[in-house]
Amino acid sequence: MLIYYASLTGNVQRFVEKLNIETKCIREENASEPYVLITYTFGFGEVPIEVKKWLKNNGHLMRAVAVSGNRNWGDNYGKAGDLIAQEYGVPLLQKFELAGTDEDVRIFNERMLRFCDITN
């Protein structure tokens, strides 16, 4: 399954570069097949405006979401993922801090394998 991502500071981009899965930035094109979205949380737990706009045209193909955040924000840590999952009725696969650790990448890859197996 393809992964689309949004990255403001480069943290999400660094995370997806560690994955062994095809990824595309949401700025590149619209989705043409089911995908998993990886995004960041903006401000005080908000969904980034660029992601909201992109999801208006592409949200119907999203199958799951993962999100980067910063634990310093307490309850707002990775909250964009919670909001997107709730609004679009998709599972939240993972929250990871900043660019994620090697363990976060391992967990994400494992969850993607399980998720893709379940959805096929």
Score class of each variant (00 low, 15 high):
97 E>P: 05
92 L>I: 09
12 V>S: 06
14 R>I: 09
63 R>Q: 09
90 V>G: 05
79 K>R: 14
67 V>D: 05
6 A>E: 07
52 K>H: 07
104 D>S: 04
90 V>P: 07
106 R>Q: 05
116 C>G: 05
35 Y>T: 06
1 M>T: 10
84 I>T: 00
110 E>M: 15
16 V>R: 02
39 T>D: 02
87 E>W: 02
104 D>C: 05
104 D>R: 04
80 A>P: 15
120 N>L: 14
93 L>F: 13
113 L>C: 06
35 Y>W: 03
36 V>M: 08
101 T>D: 04
89 G>Q: 04
76 N>G: 07
50 E>S: 03
61 L>V: 15
120 N>W: 06
111 R>G: 04
25 C>R: 05
6 A>F: 15
33 E>W: 03
79 K>Y: 14
88 Y>C: 11
43 G>A: 07
72 N>I: 12
4 Y>Q: 01
32 S>I: 14
78 G>R: 02
99 A>P: 06
54 W>E: 05
78 G>Y: 08
29 E>L: 08
83 L>N: 05
47 V>P: 13
51 V>C: 11
2 L>H: 13
36 V>H: 01
56 K>G: 08
9 T>I: 13
18 K>T: 10
83 L>M: 15
108 F>T: 00
29 E>W: 07
55 L>H: 06
102 D>L: 09
46 E>L: 14
64 A>D: 04
69 G>V: 01
18 K>M: 15
63 R>C: 11
55 L>C: 13
94 Q>W: 08
53 K>S: 13
65 V>I: 15
37 L>G: 09
67 V>C: 15
106 R>Y: 04
34 P>S: 02
34 P>F: 02
112 M>T: 00
78 G>N: 11
94 Q>T: 04
112 M>S: 02
3 I>R: 03
52 K>V: 10
87 E>S: 15
64 A>R: 01
13 Q>W: 00
61 L>P: 12
47 V>S: 07
92 L>Y: 08
72 N>L: 12
62 M>T: 04
45 G>E: 01
69 G>P: 12
26 I>M: 09
28 E>N: 06
20 N>Y: 07
62 M>N: 00
66 A>N: 10
38 I>L: 11
108 F>P: 12
13 Q>V: 00
61 L>W: 03
45 G>L: 01
75 D>A: 15
86 Q>C: 14
12 V>L: 13
107 I>L: 14
83 L>F: 03
22 E>L: 07
10 G>W: 11
88 Y>W: 12
1 M>E: 04
88 Y>A: 08
48 P>Q: 08
71 R>W: 09
116 C>N: 09
11 N>H: 11
43 G>F: 13
84 I>D: 10
96 F>Q: 02
47 V>N: 01
88 Y>E: 06
46 E>T: 00
83 L>W: 01
79 K>S: 13
83 L>E: 01
73 W>P: 07
80 A>T: 05
68 S>G: 14
29 E>I: 07
93 L>H: 05
74 G>W: 14
42 F>V: 00
39 T>K: 09
1 M>Q: 06
90 V>M: 06
81 G>C: 13
78 G>A: 14
17 E>F: 07
10 G>S: 12
54 W>I: 10
65 V>A: 11
